[in-house]
Design a protein around this nucleic acid. Structure first.
Lengths: 331, 331
DNA sequence: TTGAAAGCGCTAACAT
DNA sequence: ATGTTAGCGCTTTCAA
């Protein structure tokens, strides 16, 4: 099947290719009957404009690159949906790139992204360090970073302030007399955990104390569950925070086996809420993080960056809020 | 910052652009010292070849489109990872498209895909009907369909035979005397459920009976849990199948509340296994579906389709196998 | 209102 | 071994 081009349409409609181009792009200055003639030809030949050629001619691709850590779809899924929905609205395509632990893969990815001449890139907070971002900045591609508060001339960010989230919540706990809090992490979300850790630390520091119960699952353990089972045999806390549902469920399971009553002996909050928290028994309390919105807002900001060179129609840094949903693991 | 092109490099290195092109593409026929000269210029100017222009010139984009149902990242996440890993290996980019329920969105997506002149498209079994696929076929783009057994000249498929899976398993159950089986579904995966239903039906038919316990969560219920709670107050089964973990967990929760002992009064299998099945108590038995491989194999086949016009180095239809993992919800 | 022609950045014959 | 040149398919001045 021969590739049919704008020339073929032009010949078929007996006009110049410039006219066909005008019809395709909805130019106003084309007479109605010739427009019809051209459209018929397009229909007849089944012509589809070549986006690549358009990209070359226009110096833009209407494509946005999205970068996420590999295997993170469980928690980036909704972000991607938000991103895509808005992208569709504005007729942008999305190319997906994933960063892999180890190897100098990130620089390869940046390389690929630059070469592909996307109009913009959205990065979900991950192992891209500041150097990498600086590299991207060099190519003056508009960038939206999700998850980190960061911005400059051509970088915007959309994020949830985890540090404030946990600080506010834990402060109240502290005031109410709860001193023995702990944070469980499995090394999979260093950036987020760092935020949570800072918030918790601040609570204690403000009361002249030191936060110590930072429970890291050692690498040699196959699952959070296995380590926590050992851990909770010898330790006890009044209040435990986890970042993701899987760790919260692990804590729940372990508590039951070790004979810790939740929420009476120990309370539990999973920061990043999910539907699985609702299915657990007891149901796990958590913060509803607006993941879909993180994606949607990011893409909307991206479209604004793309349209508006003056940078005055949008905020460089956008903080989204969260809502605490108390369930059965908190009193 | 001025866009720098192959001409700039040529001038800088004092060679023709053809030579630069040769260096970029690793052509053998270029002398070592000029190669160095060119590479220095590239380095100095920070030149990155424009993939769009390359695409135009070469008539290929080294990009594969991937189409999935919206919001399905929970179960397509691993497939995507498989896809991407292999895509990276072969230096392919991935554009992501999602299909939305309702609206004639699918035709828009096909439109977009065709226009973007991707080298191939991978479709995860979804609402794309045969007409849509036929439309794609017209543009003779290589297509790999994941999940459906289907093939023709330029379509290959990679799938798990759910019908056989449940048939084999349920046959054994039947032989062992279990007659009262049920299938729970929440209308979210019609294609898969259809397969399971067929398998189950076949088991009963072969024994001159009729399979009747097809439990569909009515649309008006907010969650599987709410409906099942009513249901299991009035009904009971020896063996329940669900497709996804969320329904299995709902069954588990309901059973506990209604006083059904799992696995003694009722057994439970979640066809599509997940890590949450392991975290549930009792742990839910399930079939390990090779989701990562579904993606990886699909992309590998795609690369073969792209290289080999004779179509003789690969199978049109590839069936992947599954492994049953018994846990605590089965005896 | 329409057409002619230059140019977007690169590759690949074809010459040299 | 390197340079010249004709496309790849489209957009967009500039003329007519």
């Amino acid at each position: 099947m021969k590739r049919i081009t704008i020339y073929d349409v032009a010949k078929e409609a007996d006009v110049s290719l410039a006219t066909v181009s005008r019809v395709i792009n909805g130019s106003e200055v084309v007479r109605e009957d010739t427009r019809l003639k051209v459209q018929e030809a397009i229909e007849k030949l089944g012509y589809k404009p070549n986006a690549i050629a358009q990209g070359l001619a226009l110096q833009k691709t209407t494509t946005i690159a999205f970068v996420i850590p590999e295997a993170s779809f469980f928690y980036t899924g909704q972000i991607i949906n938000g991103l895509i929905d808005v992208a569709k609205l504005y007729n942008y395509n999305m190319v997906l790139h994933t960063t892999t632990e180890g190897i100098s893969a990130t620089s390869d990815i940046i390389e690929t992204i630059i070469k592909s001449r996307v109009d913009g890139v959205v990065i979900f907070n991950d192992k891209l360090n500041n150097d990498d971002i600086a590299t991207l900045t060099n190519y003056d591609v508009p960038i939206v970073v999700i998850g980190n508060r960061i911005s400059n001339n051509n970088i915007c960010s959309v994020y949830v302030d985890y540090e404030a989230l946990i600080y506010d919540y834990a402060s109240q706990l502290y005031e109410s007399g709860i001193r023995n809090m702990a944070l469980v992490e499995d090394r999979k979300n260093p950036a987020m955990i760092e935020e949570l850790y800072k918030g918790l630390k601040r609570v204690y520091e403000e009361h002249g104390e030191v936060f110590e119960n930072y429970i890291t699952i050692p690498k040699e353990y196959r699952s959070s569950y296995e380590y926590l089972k050992e851990y909770f045999n010898n330790n006890t806390h009044e209040f435990v925070f986890t970042y993701r549902d899987s760790q919260a469920m692990a804590v729940l399971n372990v508590a039951k086996e070790v004979g810790i009553d939740i929420p009476n002996d120990m309370q539990l909050v999973c920061v990043l809420d999910s539907k699985y928290n609702v299915m657990a028994r007891p149901q796990i309390s958590g913060f509803k993080i607006p993941d879909y919105d993180l994606g949607a807002v990011s893409m909307r900001i991206m479209t604004k960056m793309l349209q508006d060179d003056e940078h005055d129609s949008y905020n460089r840094e956008t903080e989204l809020s969260y809502v605490f949903t108390p369930r059965q693991t908190t009193k």
